[in-house]
């Protein structure tokens, strides 16, 4: 297990793995998202109260989950950077940040679009909405911090510390709807109880969520490859690949 981990941790092996995996994962992602969106938009029944408007959950909920999941990946990578000085973890964390920020923005934007007709407001300073907005600011701050430090080793350390400090926000986002009274409804699925969403709607939602997750893996793998080439451009294996013209 540890040897396998060490092998994967080498940027060269990861590059190879990414080359093999990303086309397959892309196909899987297209299938999952295609099925999820089709079932969600055309097959799933309308909601008894919200009518058709509820269908935004098929984008909103996966985006919100991924905004937190990507952050947890980033935080875990930061731990690997700080304790084990793992180069690859720094690369994964760096490429994940803009993806996570995009998911956060998507969750906020779709929520706002839904909020206007349903709640009667685009925005309310309730705990869930505010903590998700703070997550967006943490992502932006993280990217800005990376962009502002030139020295590679201090850049990765500073970024890792910021990511680990920001991790306290994740449980706050998740439990905000239980700890305080909010306009945002409590969790329908991520709770220790049976989901309060009908199976015919839950199925496409889970497909979409899985599709979004695979989408993240695909983007992360492809973007990491670019960054690996950039950082290791002087290494022999990259030079070899350049001369053989197979990047």
């Amino acid at each position: 297990m540890f040897r396998w981990f060490h092998k994967l941790a080498s940027t060269r092996n990861f590059y190879r793995l990414s080359e093999i995996l990303s086309p397959w994962l892309s196909v899987l992602c297209a299938l999952l998202l295609g099925a999820g969106i089709f079932l969600g938009l055309f097959v799933a029944p309308t909601d008894y109260e919200q009518g058709e408007s509820y269908r935004i959950i098929f984008v909103h909920v996966p985006a919100a989950w991924l905004s937190m999941f990507v952050y947890m990946v980033m935080a875990f990578c930061s731990l690997l950077v700080l304790v084990w000085k793992m180069k690859l973890a720094d690369i994964v964390a760096e490429v994940s940040a803009p993806i996570g920020a995009s998911f956060t923005f998507l969750a906020l934007a779709t929520g706002s679009l839904w909020g206007k007709p349903m709640w009667g407001t685009w925005w309310e300073w309730d705990a869930r909405l505010t903590s998700e907005l703070i997550l967006l600011f943490i992502y932006i701050g993280y990217m800005a911090l990376r962009a502002s430090i030139d020295n590679p080793s201090s850049r990765s350390r500073a970024a890792a510390i910021l990511a680990l400090v920001g991790v306290v926000n994740i449980p706050i986002i998740h439990f905000s709807v239980d700890w305080w009274n909010t306009l945002h409804q409590p969790a329908s699925i991520m709770k220790f109880d049976k989901p309060s969403i009908h199976p015919s709607m839950l199925q496409p939602l889970l497909l979409c969520a899985l599709g979004f997750t695979v989408f993240y893996w695909v983007l992360m793998l492809i973007k990491s490859r670019t960054l690996i080439l950039e950082r290791e451009s002087k290494s022999s294996w990259v030079q070899e690949r350049i001369t053989e013209n197979r990047l």
Binding site: Y48, E49, S196, I197
Partner: peptide, 18 residues
């Protein structure tokens, strides 16, 4: 001066609600 509706976490088709 403003009234907002709060939604609960239940999602179901109208037939189920009936």
């Amino acid at each position: 001066k403003k009234v907002l509706a709060k939604h609960d976490e239940n999602y179901m088709p109208p037939e189920v609600a009936d």
